[in-house]
Computed example of a mutant assay.
Amino acid sequence: MRHLIIWVALATGACSTSVPPSVHSGPVAAASGCATPAVRIDFDFEGAALSRCVINGEREFTLLVAPEHAPPINPSPWYAFRYEAGQGAPITVHLDYLVGDHRYIPKWSDGSTSRQLAVELSQDGKRASFVLPAGSARVSAQEVLDTRWHGRAIDRWKSTGGERIVLGQSHDKRPVEALTLGSASAERLVVLLGRQHPPEVSGAVAMEAFVDRIVERLAEDPGLAERYRFLVVPLVNPDGVARGHWRANRGGQDLNRDWGIFSQPETAAVKTWLDANATAHRPVVMIDFHSTRSNLFYVQGEEETDAREQAFLDSWLGQLAGKLEGFEFTIERRNANPGSGTSKNWFHETFDIPAYTYEVGDESDRSATQSAARRIADRFMETLPIAANSPQD
């Protein structure tokens, strides 16, 4: 209960410059960071949540890690900060999770080299402690792939002939950007979504490599570009990513529970584009890229899968199972829960198409993830005609 009270105070801004001594001791600096004569910690870049910082000693600090809204589904305790430390003893940092448990191995980067940090966990998983070397570097739960990283990816894909479009704006007036690939006269549409949940970086790594390969395949075979149109939305939640949220957008909503409701500008922007284009370009497949604790694909339940959808699944993912080096995955069937608000369920219910959630393990090897995503994309393009040839044709 004490942790819940503290979390409410942080979330509402009610927490001042102190924390009950039964939880921590020592002064708490402003949310923008904290400093001693030897060390400074800041949260002044995209992707850094405004954590509270407790100064335990000249070279020891505690960061209070809490979500941006009420305890979320599947907690993803995100943290990110940068530090500057003069020469001397190492710096000790403790992460105290006011909601959820430690999940992500800290990633340390000084701009030229990167590595994971060894962590000492408390028995209840609520505190993670690690040691930092002197100097200047950034520490984060996962690699910081900010809005500019996604913008550069769109620029790269656009250079091969894609069209960059703005679907709408977020609460903070950030653009919800997308890329269209393939011919404007193509009758079939593939929808690719990413980053609905900000910390799910491994899914973004997979999506980048997947789209890279799609772009290459369309360039290699102009006939594919004539048959298929792609809508690629790599950053559905730009505010959440920029603000270092665990799961929600600026409106405090889990966007992957808003499909069908469309109460948020980001999901509504995608829906508006579909309303205007889904007749000319009939949706045939949707893939939504995420991260979880292992590699897996969520697909439709057996009773919701017709013969065509099963043939597509068998020919695509079924042919890859156990054949991707360093990237073992499982296929998990999930029955649609009407009104659940997930993209997977909404696309399947609305368009009667295969709609899958592509999940990548939090700590899956990034190189293996990229290699696997390219092969998965290759097989996807080879199998796509099965999904495209619906009973409507």
Results as ranks from 00 to 15, higher is better:
G13E: 00
E302P: 08
L64R: 01
D254W: 04
A336P: 10
Y356Q: 13
P20C: 08
P385N: 08
A206W: 04
L4A: 10
G47T: 02
Q319C: 00
A206V: 03
M1P: 15
S371C: 01
V39S: 03
N237S: 05
G33P: 07
G203D: 02
D352H: 07
N237H: 02
F262L: 12
I376F: 06
Y298L: 07
I154G: 13
D101M: 11
R40V: 05
V270C: 01
G322M: 08
E226L: 14
L384R: 01
D42Q: 01
R257N: 09
P385H: 10
N74S: 14
R257F: 09
T272E: 14
R379Y: 05
A206H: 01
Q196I: 01
F297G: 11
I386S: 05
E120D: 14
T292W: 12
F327A: 08
A14W: 11
E177D: 15
L274S: 01
A89L: 06
T12M: 04
I55S: 09
S315D: 05
E309Y: 05
D110E: 04
Q264E: 14
G252S: 12
L320Y: 03
F43G: 03
T17P: 05
L384P: 02
L235V: 04
V241S: 12
S390F: 07
D44G: 08
W346Y: 14
W246D: 10
Y228G: 10
Q392N: 13
G111C: 12
R188M: 00
I55A: 07
I105W: 04
R293G: 15
S159N: 08
A209R: 08
V99G: 07
F297Q: 02
I5P: 02
P198V: 02
F81T: 11
L117N: 01
F327Y: 07
L231A: 10
R257L: 09
A276N: 10
V23M: 11
W316I: 05
L181S: 00
A388Q: 03
M207C: 10
V39Y: 05
V65P: 01
L63S: 06
P199M: 02
L4H: 07
Q142L: 04
L50Q: 15
G339I: 04
E302A: 15
R174H: 13
E302C: 00
A48F: 00
K271C: 11
Q123F: 09
S294R: 08
W246S: 11
G341L: 04
R174F: 12
T147H: 14
E266W: 03
A38S: 14
